[in-house]
Design a binder for these strands. Structure first.
Lengths: 110, 110
DNA sequence: TGGATACTTAAGTCAGTACTTGACTAATAG
DNA sequence: CTATTAGTCAAGTACTGACTTAAGTATCCA
């Protein structure tokens, strides 16, 4: 159950940034703190936090603070929403090709 | 075979814009001219053209000019690349859950 | 208690992006 | 041939978005 409603608009916007995709890649290996997320990235902790917030608002990521550490984890529903949007497009595309194929396959020569 | 190399970075960036996703939605129903693409959108033709160019550079869309009409069509490889990136993330996520499940499932077996 | 750690917040900078306008070219219909 | 249609190009503007710095809070450790 997602803790926050997924917004497809925000999800795609969030994934549009390479740094945020790098964060998602890291998070898909498992939960991790903000500062450990920041370590391999060449930007300040404050900047990483901003990215994390955007990811959280999109519904892709959930975070939780325990003591002074904020732990980030994937919220798979966000990615699923994006995947489904893409899948829907492919569905349209394939249905269209099917109809096209039907037309071309018509055995109506004489 | 894609006419242009797909760049995952550009693909996600292109999909990050709502207007461009609307264009992709329209194109997934079938090829269409730039001006017909522009009609339902509340922006100028020039702006639409700019979006189409970005989509083309990302490898999501292919366009071709015949006479004075430029026809745009989907290039499915672009969407597939994005879908695969997402799928890969989910794979990592699920593998992690599996390992976690294994640990939790058998406290005193063997 | 005091210093280090892990964020958090606010403000500001700067580049990139979406969009417009206006002038232009090329194809096509009357 | 002329008018219209369809797109193209080049500036220019306004806004957004990524990033930084700097100062602040809360927690943890010795």
């Amino acid at each position: 159950m997602p803790r926050r409603k997924v917004n497809i608009n925000r999800v795609f916007h969030a994934l549009g940034d390479a740094t945020r995709r790098a964060i998602v890649e890291k998070l898909s290996e498992g939960p991790i703190s903000v500062s450990r997320l920041a370590k391999p990235l060449d930007i300040t902790l404050a900047a990483v936090l901003q990215h994390v917030q955007i990811l959280e608002e999109s519904g892709l990521v959930h975070t939780e603070k325990t003591g002074r550490v904020r732990t980030c984890r994937m919220e798979p529903a966000g990615l699923s929403a994006a995947e489904q949007w893409i899948g829907d497009r492919r569905l349209f595309w394939e249905q269209r090709l099917d109809r096209l194929g039907d037309l071309l396959a018509e055995p109506d020569e004489d």
